[in-house]
């Protein structure tokens, strides 16, 4: 889980071009959107693509995505739960 979380942080930084952010700056349990990293709905769509590409799991709708993408931790939990 820890390794997955760390990898996810690196993947997020790369996919969203968060140049000045380091993996250790991202709080695993803090909300990614709005206040947290200041991400928006376009980032959410990018993260949905990222999860499918890197982890092979498809999120069906933006609505479903909302809960999954709440924090790095929720994403990691979703991936572990759905990994075949």
């Amino acid at each position: 889980m820890d390794e997955l979380i760390n990898n996810l942080k690196i993947e997020i930084i790369e996919a969203l071009n968060l140049e000045d952010v380091k993996a250790e700056d991202i709080d695993t349990e803090a909300p990614l959107f709005n206040e947290g990293l200041g991400l928006d709905s376009i980032d959410a769509l990018e993260l949905i693509v990222l999860i499918e590409k890197k982890h092979g799991i498809k999120i069906q709708s933006a609505d479903e995505g909302k809960q999954i993408l709440y924090s790095v931790k929720t994403i990691a939990e979703f991936i572990i739960k759905n990994k075949k």
Partner: peptide, 9 residues
């Protein structure tokens, strides 16, 4: 498949 939305937008 698996296209990024940003370049489209």
């Amino acid at each position: 498949k698996m296209l990024n939305p940003t370049p489209f937008i």
